[in-house]
Computed example of a mutant assay.
Amino acid sequence: MPKMKTHKGMKKRFKVSATGKVSHKRCGSSHLNSHKSGKKIRRLRKKCYLGVSAESRRVRNALRVRMSTNPLAVEAAKLAALAEEKALEAEAAAPVAE
Score class of each variant (00 low, 15 high):
residue 8 K to C: 06
residue 9 G to D: 08
residue 10 M to E: 00
residue 13 R to F: 08
residue 13 R to Q: 13
residue 14 F to V: 05
residue 15 K to N: 10
residue 15 K to D: 12
residue 16 V to F: 07
residue 16 V to Y: 06
residue 16 V to Q: 08
residue 16 V to N: 07
residue 17 S to G: 13
residue 18 A to P: 04
residue 18 A to Q: 13
residue 18 A to I: 04
residue 19 T to N: 14
residue 20 G to P: 04
residue 20 G to Y: 09
residue 21 K to D: 13
residue 21 K to R: 14
residue 22 V to Y: 00
residue 22 V to D: 03
residue 23 S to G: 03
residue 23 S to M: 12
residue 23 S to L: 14
residue 25 K to R: 13
residue 26 R to W: 09
residue 26 R to E: 09
residue 27 C to P: 01
residue 27 C to M: 08
residue 27 C to L: 07
residue 27 C to K: 12
residue 27 C to G: 06
residue 28 G to T: 02
residue 29 S to A: 14
residue 29 S to H: 13
residue 29 S to T: 02
residue 29 S to W: 06
residue 30 S to E: 10
residue 30 S to G: 05
residue 31 H to E: 05
residue 32 L to A: 10
residue 32 L to S: 12
residue 33 N to A: 03
residue 34 S to K: 06
residue 34 S to H: 07
residue 34 S to D: 07
residue 36 K to H: 01
residue 37 S to L: 03
residue 38 G to P: 04
residue 38 G to H: 00
residue 39 K to C: 00
residue 39 K to G: 08
residue 40 K to L: 15
residue 40 K to W: 05
residue 40 K to R: 14
residue 40 K to I: 14
residue 40 K to H: 07
residue 41 I to W: 00
residue 43 R to L: 05
residue 43 R to N: 12
residue 44 L to S: 03
residue 44 L to D: 06
residue 45 R to E: 15
residue 45 R to L: 15
residue 45 R to T: 10
residue 46 K to N: 11
residue 46 K to R: 13
residue 46 K to F: 06
residue 47 K to M: 12
residue 47 K to L: 14
residue 48 C to V: 14
residue 48 C to N: 11
residue 49 Y to G: 03
residue 49 Y to Q: 10
residue 50 L to W: 09
residue 50 L to V: 15
residue 51 G to F: 01
residue 51 G to H: 08
residue 52 V to C: 11
residue 54 A to D: 05
residue 54 A to M: 00
residue 54 A to S: 09
residue 55 E to W: 10
residue 55 E to C: 11
residue 57 R to W: 03
residue 57 R to M: 12
residue 57 R to S: 15
residue 60 R to F: 11
residue 60 R to T: 05
residue 61 N to H: 11
residue 62 A to W: 01
residue 62 A to Q: 09
residue 62 A to T: 03
residue 62 A to K: 13
residue 62 A to R: 12
residue 63 L to G: 06
residue 63 L to C: 07
residue 63 L to W: 07
residue 64 R to N: 09
residue 65 V to K: 08
residue 65 V to P: 01
residue 66 R to M: 14
residue 67 M to Y: 00
residue 67 M to G: 04
residue 68 S to E: 13
residue 69 T to D: 04
residue 69 T to I: 08
residue 69 T to S: 11
residue 70 N to Y: 00
residue 70 N to L: 02
residue 70 N to F: 01
residue 71 P to M: 11
residue 71 P to Y: 11
residue 71 P to S: 12
residue 72 L to S: 12
residue 74 V to S: 10
residue 74 V to C: 09
residue 74 V to Y: 02
residue 75 E to L: 12
residue 75 E to G: 04
residue 76 A to N: 08
residue 76 A to G: 01
residue 77 A to L: 02
residue 77 A to S: 03
residue 77 A to I: 01
residue 78 K to F: 01
residue 78 K to A: 05
residue 79 L to E: 14
residue 80 A to E: 11
residue 81 A to Q: 11
residue 82 L to D: 11
residue 82 L to C: 01
residue 82 L to R: 10
residue 82 L to A: 07
residue 83 A to V: 01
residue 83 A to D: 15
residue 84 E to W: 03
residue 84 E to V: 02
